[in-house]
């Protein structure tokens, strides 16, 4: 005759179930945030990097990092600001490493393989204007650049940018003013 042993789920198992429930709740909440803030992450990265593949990689990395530390975020309403800072920092890191790589390659490249200087027609075209604008943005201080990007994004007011970056409205306005002025001087 075989003995039937009834076992109760142990305390560890209960705790594991609680953790699993919390994890799934946290994941659901994160997915809502992901839907809301994923595009911002990509656009900030693209604004800095101006390379779709790189921007997508960086946005993805930032979103995954945010997810891994999502439980530690005390105020979920600050998620967007938190994510923007992560993605901006990662994008700047990527940009710097790309520039270092390009600098090495340019140093060693043969003269005939270097890009030809722009012609008058190029300068006249809007593509060239955009390229110049992008170069000018690269030269802006980081704080000015981020404010410029966020305020240029559709759907964000100055108040929202101020809340997102945790800085006063006056600071947003002054950074925007100096950023535009510097850009205009560089493009003139």
């Amino acid at each position: 005759m075989r003995e039937l042993v009834l076992t109760q789920p142990g305390r560890a198992l209960e705790e594991e179930m609680v953790r699993e429930t919390e994890r799934s709740g946290s994941r659901r909440e994160f997915e809502v945030r992901l839907h809301e803030c994923g595009p911002v992450a990509y656009r900030v990265a693209q604004g800095v990097l101006r390379n779709r593949a790189d921007a997508e990689d960086v946005a993805q990395e930032a979103l995954l990092r945010a997810y891994r530390k999502f439980d530690r975020l005390r105020d979920p309403t600050r998620f967007r600001a938190w994510l923007v800072r992560i993605v901006f920092r990662l994008a700047l890191d990527r940009l710097r490493s790309r520039k270092r790589r390009e600098s090495r390659e340019t140093t060693w490249a043969l003269p005939e393989r270097r890009p030809a200087p722009p012609t008058a027609e190029d300068l006249a075209s809007s593509t060239e204007l955009r390229a110049r604008l992008e170069r000018a943005m690269d030269e802006l201080p980081e704080k000015l650049r981020l404010v410029l990007l966020l305020t240029a994004m559709q759907g964000y007011t100055l108040e929202e940018v101020s809340g997102m970056l945790g800085i006063p409205m006056g600071t947003v306005k002054s950074r925007l003013f100096f950023a535009r002025k510097q850009l205009a001087e560089k493009l003139r």
Binding site: R43, G47, M137, L149, A152, M153, Q154
Partner: peptide, 8 residues
């Protein structure tokens, strides 16, 4: 230009 860059 900024709007185009920021709203890819």
């Amino acid at each position: 230009g900024l709007t185009a860059i920021a709203n890819e």
